[in-house]
């Protein structure tokens, strides 16, 4: 109405093709949007759903983009802003807390030189505070791209973990 902006066709063809594959594997069923977005998010190296991708998914599933946006901001495993190649999720809930997840977090902050919610300069790591992810018997633990790394109770273990993620 006001703006005379040009229509944008912002998705690279290969990304669009990959998204289409995900959609197809979910039968273009909009009720599976949460699962779809989880998969689509991992197509991006920074593990998030960029704005044009959200619009694209909404378009293809014939659902309002507000719905997609709402979902992206409701579920903590989904993000509409860039994260990192390796988002490090530190559990801060009670079972991990009493097993010194604070110490683990402090060590990670020190080694990476970032705070919670920040990303390292090379885009490799971001630190995220999360609630219990069900690895209480392996505390203190972090979760990175779906994998749990447990018993991180010494600096050596933490450093070795970071070094292994290239």
């Amino acid at each position: 109405m006001l703006s005379e902006q040009k229509p944008k066709y912002p998705l690279p063809a290969d990304l669009q093709a990959k998204i289409d594959l995900v959609l197809e594997s979910h039968d273009y069923d909009f009720t599976q949007i949460v699962g779809i977005l989880l998969e689509v998010q991992d197509l991006d190296e920074m593990h998030y759903v960029p704005e044009p991708v959200a619009y694209y998914v909404a378009n293809r599933l014939n659902m309002p983009v507000t719905n997609v946006f709402d979902i992206l901001n409701f579920y903590s495993e989904l993000s509409s802003t860039p994260r990192a190649k390796y988002p490090i999720q530190v559990c801060t809930s009670i079972a991990c807390h009493v097993n010194d997840s604070d110490g683990l977090a402090a060590k990670l902050k020190e080694l990476l030189n970032i705070d919670f919610g920040e990303t390292t300069y090379d885009g490799r790591f971001t630190l995220e505070k999360v609630t219990c992810f069900g690895a209480c018997d392996r505390a203190p633990a972090v979760r990175i791209n779906g994998h749990v790394y447990d018993h991180l109770d010494t600096t050596e273990k933490i450093r070795a973990l970071l070094d292994s993620l290239k």
């Binding site: 109405m1 703006s3 040009k6 229509p7 944008k8 066709y9 912002p10 044009p52 694209y56 378009n59």
Partner: peptide
């Protein structure tokens, strides 16, 4: 025609 933020084929 008012352009929307994104338009796809």
């Amino acid at each position: 025609k008012v352009p929307l933020p994104y338009e796809f084929d």
